[in-house]
Amino acid sequence: MPNYRRARVPGATYFFTVNLRDRSSDLLVREIDLLRATVRATKARHPFHIDAWVVLPEHMHCLWTLPAGDADFALRWQVIKFAFAKRLPLTETRTATLKARGERGIWQRRYWEHLIRDDADYQHHFDYIHFNPKKHGHVDQLRDWPYSSFHRAVRDGIYLIDWCGCLLESRDE
């Protein structure tokens, strides 16, 4: 089994990508209220700041800043994934290994995390998160995707309502 090395820096900001096991599913947007409630409950017990978040049908990206002295993002993801899955009916197919471990077949076991290095890195990931619904062809206008902190960024004056991330579009291709 691989030995994954994770950068753990207390109080840091991290970018995450978290995927469903079934990449053809729309579970995350279909159960958006449950996902939001699960994140709220997790934040209440294990505080963190949500800098940016986008939920797509089968994956999500987010930027979190952890409290000073705290680097345990893994616990937060464990709680979110477990609590979300626990509240769903058992309808997914599970392998014998998943059954033996008592695990659901909803989430990919791992997730991608990236320690934000500086302001430019932060801005790149912040923009990447908000551009994602357009990148994946879910909307033509980012304002039309309801499951994104893009709307908060517009209210806060970070983006104009018609921001499109055109620089990202050409750089990420």
Rank of each mutant, 00 (worst) to 15 (best):
N3L: 09
G11S: 03
G11A: 03
A12M: 04
Y14H: 04
N19L: 10
L20Q: 09
L20W: 06
R21S: 14
R21K: 15
R23Q: 14
S24T: 15
S25N: 07
L27F: 07
L28G: 04
V29K: 02
V29Q: 07
R30Q: 14
E31N: 13
I32P: 07
I32D: 12
L34G: 04
L34T: 03
L35Q: 02
V39Y: 12
V39F: 14
V39Q: 12
R40S: 12
R40W: 13
A41P: 00
K43W: 10
R45I: 08
R45L: 12
H46Y: 15
P47L: 07
H49W: 12
I50C: 10
I50H: 00
D51P: 00
P57D: 08
H59A: 06
M60Y: 14
M60K: 09
M60D: 09
L63Y: 09
T65C: 04
L66V: 05
A68I: 11
A71W: 11
A71L: 10
F73W: 09
L75G: 10
W77F: 13
V79Q: 06
I80F: 05
F82S: 15
A85I: 07
K86G: 06
R87T: 08
L88C: 08
L90A: 15
T95M: 04
T95E: 07
A96P: 14
L98C: 01
A100W: 11
A100F: 11
R109W: 12
R109Q: 14
R109E: 14
R110E: 03
W112T: 08
W112L: 09
E113K: 00
I116V: 13
R117I: 09
D119K: 14
Q123W: 13
D127Y: 03
D127E: 10
Y128R: 10
F131S: 02
P133A: 02
P133Y: 01
K134M: 11
K135S: 01
H138M: 06
V139M: 03
V139P: 08
V139T: 03
L142R: 03
P146Q: 01
S149V: 01
R152M: 00
R152H: 01
V154R: 00
D156E: 13
G157Q: 04
G157F: 07
G157C: 06
L160I: 02
I161A: 15
I161Q: 12
G165I: 01
G165T: 01
C166W: 00
C166V: 00
C166I: 00
L168P: 05
L168A: 07
E169T: 00
E169V: 00
S170M: 12
S170L: 11
S170R: 15
R171N: 08
D172R: 15
E173F: 13
E173H: 13
